[in-house]
Design a protein around this nucleic acid. Structure first.
Length: 299
DNA sequence: GCCCAGGTGTCTG
DNA sequence: CAGACACATGGG
């Protein structure tokens, strides 16, 4: 078992609540205060069990990570991947300082204190998820994702249960249009998804290449060139995959509803109203969005 | 039956 | 550039 030291303002329980929000999720399992999720690179496949390390004194809390398959020590990249998922390297202090001043948002900081932006390190997975989730309810989106994952994704077995990886682009490309149609994908989404898979399989788009662009505007512009990726998907991807804390998916239906609830409004706020509020969120728009998404679980 | 869902591309004025 | 519309289907 290995340990990851935890920064201030981190709550594993809060993060697990978000990770466990859908019972149709097939890419990880939340049970008994632990996250179970498969990981792999070119050299190694492991089934990670991530939990809170309990024997520590309060002053030095840590996460425990171990491989259920082999029990052998995990390589650095696996631990870095866990840190990425929980956004552990973020200096979150400025977020709490700034949003503590916003009367509408401040209550969420208390309620969900320690929640981090839960990230999706895999770019193909993130973009595919935005395509799947467009204009349908989340439950249906999770079902559609599950069908795709179970059809062509790799998995590891442990105690009789399959733990899935999101498919690689090449694996998605083995599917015919009719296969996806059977999984209830619309013609439009089939087009978007297969085009994306082709783009990434042929090496025309890499996460590293996107990260190298550095500037938000350049990254956003690059993503918009992809078929089926509009402003919402681009911002969602920058936020969830690259961890850009200021990315704001302003047209997001969930964001609108969460804002409607916390402001006790009859109708959803319009975009100008949101822009006005978001002026108080400078640099942390994506983090605020994530806390607002979290608030939807309670409704 | 109607409206809304973690939207986007296309077409039109 | 703004606005209408198709896309597909499940849930309230």
């Amino acid at each position: 078992m290995q340990k990851i030291t935890l920064p201030p303002h981190f709550s594993f329980e809060e993060c697990l609540t978000f990770l466990g929000r859908s019972d149709r999720e097939v890419l990880h399992t939340v049970e008994d205060n632990r996250l179970i999720r498969p990981w792999r690179d070119e050299n190694r496949t492991a089934l990670l069990e991530i939990g809170l390390h309990s024997e520590d004194f309060e002053s030095s809390k840590s996460l425990s990570v171990r491989d259920l398959l082999s029990g052998e020590a995990l390589p650095i990249p696996a631990l870095d991947w866990v840190k990425e998922i929980f956004d552990l390297d973020r200096d979150i202090e400025p977020f709490y300082r700034l949003l503590g001043l916003d009367p509408a948002i401040a209550p969420l900081l208390d309620r969900y204190h320690g929640l981090r932006l839960i990230r999706i390190p895999n770019l193909f997975e993130t973009l595919s998820w935005t395509i799947i989730g467009q204009q349908i309810n989340l439950g249906f989106a999770y079902s559609m994702k599950a069908r795709l994952v179970e059809a062509v994704g790799d998995s590891v077995q442990w105690k009789g249960k399959h733990h899935h990886f999101f498919p690689r682009p090449e694996q998605v490309l083995t599917l015919k249009e009719a296969d996806l149609k059977d999984m209830q994908y619309s013609r439009q989404k089939i087009d978007y998804l297969l085009t994306l898979a082709e783009t990434m399989a042929s090496g025309k788009l890499h996460k590293q290449e996107l990260m190298n662009l550095e500037k938000y505007s350049a990254q956003h512009k690059r993503l918009l060139k992809l078929r089926g990726i509009g402003p919402w998907s681009a911002d969602y991807t920058l936020m969830k995959c690259l961890g850009v804390p200021s990315a704001l998916p302003i047209s997001d239906a969930g964001l609108h509803n969460a804002l409607r609830y916390i402001h006790q409004m009859e109708a959803k706020p319009d975009q100008n109203q949101i822009k006005l509020w978001a002026e108080n969120w400078q640099g942390w728009q994506g983090y605020v969005t994530f806390f607002l998404w979290r608030s939807l679980i309670d409704n």
